[in-house]
Design a protein around this nucleic acid. Structure first.
Length: 565
RNA sequence: UACCCGGUGGUGUAAUCGGCAACACAGGAGGUUUUGGUCCUCCUAUUCCAGGUUCGAGUCCUGGCCGGGUAGCCA
């Protein structure tokens, strides 16, 4: 067991509670958590926070964490979502052994508990319509009034509830409600609905049931039946905790402790399922796994490693107040992991032809390149070199400004792992655009070191024109142009804040030949550019890469400040 | 306007009995470097306000201010 304290890690307030309970023996030394998604959408990075919290706590305290689908609403839930959630939680690196549960498996037990509550005189069948229930509930400042059906006899309630279950009544015509207090300051306690009539086909129980439990009635029992110790949920359920407690105590069931924490917010993106669904349905992104989406599958396709997401979830911490994390922190976590693990390769995104005039036309060389300077065990590889090469257009300027260290007329730079070259001529087309560069190379600098000790200020990446593989590269930027996408003028929709430059497709890229057999989702660092990942859209004849995140770019910063002044 | 929860650098968190406000990100300066990457050094910047208790308050008390949540037969 790697308990937090023993690792000398600061405990967040939830782990503190768990640690205290663990120590005091409140739950007999047991720690049991659960991650309870509703299968009505794809998981996003906000869910990852909850997943890492629940599975992480279980792991740290030698306990268990169940994966449980909270599937009490047949109208919104689908098997597709169940499958994606299972895949995503696994991909993040968590496991639940055989503890895959469904709230719908407990419907019969919940039904029996409901009968028990009716028999105790604590629940009744109400014939009010939804609108009437709302009227009777009162408001935030005004107490509610009691339903005219509140004092039916236990026998009548039992009979009506039985007939509700038997399907004798149409949708919405009746509900089973708890008899609590219509004047309670907490609106959740004003005779909350426990069951509604819904003649809908459930993705697992099909047409077995036509009454479905509400969240408040169901969730506590799901936790109770699974003998959860700490039921961790987000802040919006704080007001529901008195009800969670009331239901469990009313039937004398095993009673876990509910603890609430603040959900994750990230700037430049949205995190609500509704909004993500809207982006997908309106075709504003290419699907749930569009690499611009904050979904787990989107991040996966983008090239993020599960380790980097888990580490992100660790460093953001857990608290009880709303906050917005800077997307730069996520990028930092991604770079931190990918720097250690990614194989380096050379790729030219915007090619500019370079001809080495003094290099023999028919000569080819194989030069040694280091696969990962952060990991000696990654070894080396050969990269082919010849007379004609491609370099990055950004790496040449005819009239270099201050602090531009790269290639310029008459200037010498190093080609990574190859030779020093000097630009001697710039060839332009009729429109004045640069089409190719003529350079000379110094044969004595093979491998990249000058025997005379002379220095160059820049090292450029390159690929051999003859050996290069063509590729498409998709560059991604923030999905939204505004830090807070929800900040809109009166009647506008958050989609007005979409970043028009969130995707830039480059179709004329040249990558080194070692990439020929790269597999979908394989991650690389393109030297000096960033981290890239093979997109599953790739085919045998066509490689497609997604840019996960750029490398930190000092020159870009200098350029920006130069433009300002 | 009722009830509940909360407020620590630009951002996110820590300070465990009331005892030097710290860590990370971002930003800035420098060093190393065959990636303007990585790594290393340094710098900038913090307890919502007003009272009170105390030798001593981010922490305890009182009052205020500000922010979030809640009026689904969603979760």
């Amino acid at each position: 067991m790697t308990q937090g304290k023993e690792e000398n890690i600061k405990l967040d307030f939830i782990r503190q509670i768990v640690a205290d309970d663990f120590k005091s023996g409140k739950w007999g030394g047991r720690v049991a958590t659960r991650f309870p998604p509703e299968p009505n959408g794809y998981l996003h990075i906000g869910h990852a926070k909850s997943i890492c919290l629940n599975f992480g706590i279980a792991e740290e305290f030698g306990g268990t964490c169940n994966l449980r689908f909270d599937d009490t609403n047949p109208e919104k839930e689908e098997q597709e979502y169940v499958d994606s959630i299972i895949e995503d939680v696994h991909w993040l690196g968590w496991d639940w052994d055989d503890r895959l549960y469904f709230g719908s498996d407990y419907f019969e037990q919940m039904y029996q508990y409901a009968i028990q509550l009716i028999k105790a005189g604590k629940a009744y069948v109400c014939d009010l319509t939804a609108d009437e229930v709302r009227d009777y509930r009162g408001t935030l400042t005004k107490p509610g009034k009691e339903s005219p059906h509140r004092n039916r006899s236990i026998e009548e309630n039992l009979e009506l509830f039985e007939r509700m279950k038997a399907g004798e009544f149409p949708d919405g015509s009746r509900t089973l409600r708890a008899k609590i207090d219509m004047t309670h300051p907490n609106l959740n306690m004003r005779d909350p609905v426990m069951y509604r009539i819904l003649h809908a086909t459930h993705h697992r129980t099909a047409d077995l049931w036509c009454i479905y439990p509400t969240y408040d009635w169901a969730h506590g029992f799901e936790d109770s039946i699974e003998k959860i110790t700490h039921s961790i949920c987000t802040l919006e359920f704080e007001n529901h905790r008195p009800l969670y407690d009331w239901f469990l105590d009313a039937v004398g069931a095993y009673h876990p402790q509910q603890i609430e924490f603040a959900r994750l917010n990230l700037n430049y993106t949205v995190m609500s399922k509704r909004k993500l669904l809207q982006l997908v349905q309106q075709g504003l992104v290419k699907g749930w796994d569009d690499p611009r989406m904050p979904t787990i599958c989107g991040l996966r396709r983008r090239g993020c490693s599960p380790e980097s997401i888990r580490n992100f979830c660790k460093v953001i911490g857990v608290n009880k107040f709303n906050s917005t994390i800077d997307i730069a922190l996520l990028e930092h976590c991604i770079r931190e992991d990918l720097n250690k693990t990614s194989q380096r390769v050379m790729a030219v995104l915007r090619p500019l032809k370079v001809i080495i005039d003094n290099y023999p036309e028919d000569k080819n060389e194989e030069l040694d390149a280091i696969n990962n300077p952060e990991d000696a065990s990654a070894g080396t590889r050969k990269v082919p070199f010849c007379r004609e090469l491609y370099i990055e257009r950004d790496d040449f300027m005819e009239e270099p400004p201050k602090k531009f260290y790269r290639l310029a007329p008459g200037r010498e730079v190093r080609l990574r792992y190859a030779y020093f070259i000097t630009c001697i001529n710039v060839v332009k087309n009729a429109d004045g655009e640069i089409v190719e560069l003529h350079c000379t190379y110094d044969p004595a600098t093979r491998g990249g070191d000058a025997p005379d000790g002379r220095k160059v200020k820049a090292t450029l990446h390159w690929v051999s024109a003859k050996h290069a593989i063509d590729a498409e590269v998709r560059l991604y930027n923030n999905l939204f142009a505004k830090e807070n996408p929800d900040e809109v003028e009166n009647d506008q929709d958050f989609t007005v804040n979409l970043n028009p430059n969130s995707l830039e497709v480059l179709t004329d890229c040249k990558v080194e030949p070692s990439l020929k057999n790269a597999k979908p989702l394989q991650r690389f660092q393109f030297e000096r550019l960033g981290y890239f990942c093979v997109d599953p859209d790739s085919t045998d004849g066509k490689l497609i890469f997604n840019r996960t995140v750029t490398l930190k770019d000092e020159w870009a910063k200098i350029q920006q400040s130069q433009q300002k002044s």
